[in-house]
Design a binder for these strands. Structure first.
Length: 475
RNA sequence: GCGGGUAUCGUCUAACGGUUAAGACAUCGGUUUGUGGUACCGAGAAUUAGGGUUCGAUUCCCUGUACUCGCCCCA
């Protein structure tokens, strides 16, 4: 630290001396004091968020706004109502719903004890909290299906890499109280609509059925027996999985496990009658919808509450690389697992960060935010005072106006106005302030006229040729 | 959690182990006091942190940190 300080002092001292400007001693004293203080503070606060957290800067917001618009439109179309649940829940909610033995619960949860001694966690996904709210607020008395839509941050203590953050945003669509497979199909249709509205092409759905607790138990028995017989050919992780969560061996990425898994019994061959019928009609509906799907018998998903239908949405780029955008499935027993009345349900989540990433990749068409077409310049103390009211008056009339009240010279204000590309600059100086007038300058032609306050709005609108940007409109 | 790569002004880039750490873009101010662009002038702004090797380190070595890529896993 001392060394750092010395370095800075030296650097500044030599710089100042050569410039021969301000008294050297004074300048150095002030400079170094504030400088090192700033450095100390910056070191203390790190000047960056913790690992895996990031800022969504103004430049990114158009993408997020676009997404929000699409979500609110589609949730309206399909009858999903918005719900927001807390980012913090009791840890047991997730242990109970997502399940022990899953990576999410075992190694990726932000879990901590509050000052009051409660064991809580940052939500690693949205469905559990929504399920909890469903039971707590007695939503089972609402007409079925109860369709809920939610977005918000979720947290996983994972290693960040491309498209992967410890805090990321998900959008969730969940429908409670209906077991008909047409709902499964409609949800997949909804997912398809969201993704294509965004402008993403090259989508593929991967679909599987993992059965209900009854047939899955039988299937798992078969699977375990099979893998036990090939145990020596499995990777270390899969040997562990065999004990904890044998289904997950199916989507291990190790070559040798893939080979073993290829010949493993498939869940869709072992479904009970009910599950088979359910899956079969889902496929019929999907064929009717003409959606791009493939059956992937090795698709399992990392949350243990799923039953019957599971699916994922993938997008492919030019290089053939695939990006997972989201996934979901049926969870007919989640609500009773959480202590509620038996309620079949289905839902899916989309990774909003990844959708934004894809939007950028495919250069998605964006809704363009209105930009100010008028600039308000002021000159002198009196004009400055008046300008606040003029500004408010313009906004009230739906005229988006930019300004730079803090700036002094008219020249710098006009320069800014020009750079913003406005069509009109309004100028209030000492004289105008006294006369209750404003100079209306047409930036294209360069001509200007002085008008009364009363006539200001009309004059401005006339120049803008009725193409007034109106605020507070939907869409 | 495991491996590989990277780290210089706000951004992008430059600097045989020896420079006052350079430039461009951006920002701010100015070129006579009430009018834009261009041009010109000026200002602020960086070697990720800590150790080591060396007469001397932005440069070489080690460690931490962050970013990034791959694995694991997922969205």
């Amino acid at each position: 630290m001392a060394q750092v300080k010395g370095k800075i002092v030296k650097k500044i001292a030599t710089k100042k001396m050569e410039k021969k400007t301000t008294p050297v001693k004074k300048a150095v004293g002030i400079k170094t004091a504030s400088k090192s203080k700033a450095q100390e503070v910056q070191e203390e606060i790190m000047l960056q968020p913790p690992r895996g957290m990031r800022d969504l800067l103004p430049g990114d917001q158009p993408y997020w706004n676009q997404l929000r618009r699409i979500f609110s439109k589609i949730s309206l179309e399909y009858g999903y109502q918005r719900i927001d649940t807390p980012a913090v829940e009791y840890a047991n909610l997730f242990v109970r719903s997502i399940g022990k033995g899953t990576d999410i619960v075992d190694k990726e949860m932000y879990i901590f004890t509050t000052k009051g001694g409660d064991k809580v966690a940052l939500r690693p996904e949205l469905t559990a909290g929504i399920g909890r709210a469903f039971i707590q607020h007695g939503m089972n008395v609402l007409p079925k299906p109860v369709k809920l839509f939610s977005t918000g941050p979720v947290y996983r203590y994972d290693r960040p890499q491309e498209g992967r953050y410890r805090e990321h945003f998900q959008a969730n669509f969940d429908a409670f109280g209906e077991q008909d497979p047409i709902l499964d199909a409609q949800l997949i249709q909804l997912a398809h609509r969201v993704v294509t509205s965004i402008g993403i092409k090259n989508i593929q759905f991967q679909i599987n059925s993992i059965g209900c607790p009854k047939c899955r138990k039988e299937y798992q028995g078969l699977l375990v027996a099979y893998f036990e017989s090939k145990k020596q050919k499995l990777c270390i992780n899969c040997k562990k999985r065999l004990e904890i969560n044998p289904l997950r061996i199916l989507d291990c990425k190790e070559d040798k496990c893939i080979q073993v898994a290829a010949l493993a019994p498939q869940s869709i061959d072992r479904l009970c009658n009910e599950c088979r019928v359910h899956f079969k009609s889902l496929l019929e509906y999907l064929d009717e919808l003409d959606l791009p799907y493939v059956i992937n018998p090795r698709l399992v998903r990392g949350l243990s509450y799923y039953t019957k239908t599971v699916f994922e949405i993938w997008s492919g780029d030019e290089e053939g690389k695939k990006h997972s955008l989201g996934g979901g499935g049926r969870y007919d027993h989640l609500i009773d697992e959480l202590g509620g009345e038996h309620t079949p349900a289905i839902g899916f989540g989309l990774g909003m960060d990844r959708l934004v990433q894809e939007m950028k990749r495919v250069h998605a068409k964006m809704y363009i935010e209105p930009k100010p077409r008028v600039f308000l310049a002021q000159l002198g103390d009196l004009a400055k005072k008046k300008s606040l009211n003029v500004f408010a008056e313009l906004q009230k009339n739906g005229i988006l106006t930019a300004e730079s009240f803090g700036r002094g010279s008219l020249k710098s204000q006009l320069r800014l106005a020009d750079r913003l590309g406005v069509e009109i600059t309004l100028i209030i100086g000492q004289k105008e302030a006294l006369d209750e007038t404003v100079i209306v300058k047409d930036m294209v032609s360069g001509t200007q006229e002085t008008v009364n306050h009363q006539r200001l709005i009309i004059a401005v609108k006339k120049i803008l040729k009725n193409n007034v940007v109106v605020l507070h409109t939907e869409e």
